[in-house]
Computed example of a mutant assay.
Amino acid sequence: MQDDGTDHRERFAEEARSERPDLSLLCLLLGAVADPRLGDAGVDAAQMELDRLAGLLPYGAKSPRGWATALAALLGDRLGFHGSPGDYQKLESSLLHEVLRSRRGLPILLSVVWIEVARRAGAPVYGVALPGHFVVGFGDPQELGGPDARVLADPFGGGAPLTGPDAERLVVGATGTPIEPSALSPAQPLDVVLRVLNNIRAWAAVRPERSDVGLWAVELSLLLPSHPARLRYERAQLLVQRGDFLTGAAELDAYAEVVAAVEPSAAEALRGRARAARARLN
């Protein structure tokens, strides 16, 4: 599942820099880079499937709890969208088109399905990037009203509603530390996409034979307007690992320039690695 994918990468970069990035389109373009068989037709078909699912929701105004209940009844109960521990071992669990097909995935991708279906139906919905477990919220995140003003749901669990203590247990179980109030803020589309790419990079990192996946994941991350500078170092390492010594060395030198002002010794070490990479050509 590797591609050249130039057109889809360009579209990904374009959409990421647009005024209002489209979350589903970015996730599908990511999938088209991962699997060139998807193509533009597959991207369009997946968008139409999200439209179709939204059309299956009961019509009419709803409270946040009503929206959460309707989504759980449709996507969780009727259609079987959910996750299991085994899904963490599959690259497909991080690809939106595959999750729409299999109805299985990681918490963040299942949440993308919920968000995009609910948004198309007019629901006040947003993603919530809890540490270690992504969920969705319904209602106004700033609303200070009663218990139904804001409702959290866990798509990985088929849409089970989450109380405050439930969310606290999820975070403590994943990280060992209490939840911070800021963790309940709406996640922005580009932050969601970067987290998806981070999951893919982590999946590839423990599978050296899939360095191709790690490389396109880090390269897409670098196309986002805001990303950790250290990703350039990760890309350089992957290029060298895959035998592209000259390009990897050039990237190491470029990253050395970035860190030179604050960490001269680290920059010199990077330049040494660049020289070592070039020497492997001899």
Rank of each mutant, 00 (worst) to 15 (best):
A249R: 00
A187F: 03
P131L: 11
R120D: 04
E143S: 15
L190D: 03
E180W: 07
L194I: 07
T177V: 10
D140N: 10
Y233L: 15
S185I: 05
G127N: 04
G214S: 11
A160C: 09
A160L: 12
A236K: 01
D166V: 04
V192N: 00
A121L: 03
E219F: 01
P181W: 10
Y126E: 05
G137S: 08
I200R: 03
L231T: 01
T163W: 07
P181G: 09
G127V: 01
A183H: 15
T163F: 07
G164V: 13
L220S: 04
G157N: 05
I200P: 02
P141D: 14
T247A: 15
F245Q: 12
G145A: 11
A153G: 01
W203V: 07
R201W: 10
A205S: 15
V128A: 02
D191W: 08
A236S: 08
A160E: 12
L231W: 02
P225K: 11
D148Y: 02
I200A: 04
G173F: 09
S221K: 05
R195I: 05
A123M: 02
G139F: 01
R232E: 12
G173L: 11
L220N: 03
A229V: 12
R150C: 13
G146Y: 11
G137F: 02
G173A: 15
D148I: 04
D212K: 00
D191T: 13
G248M: 02
S221C: 08
G139R: 03
G139M: 02
T163S: 15
F245H: 14
G173C: 11
L170K: 11
L152E: 05
P124T: 03
P161L: 15
G176I: 04
E234F: 06
A183C: 14
T163I: 07
P228E: 08
P124Y: 02
A249H: 00
I179N: 06
E168T: 15
V117E: 00
V192E: 03
L184A: 12
L162D: 03
P131K: 14
A229R: 12
P131R: 14
E143I: 07
A123V: 01
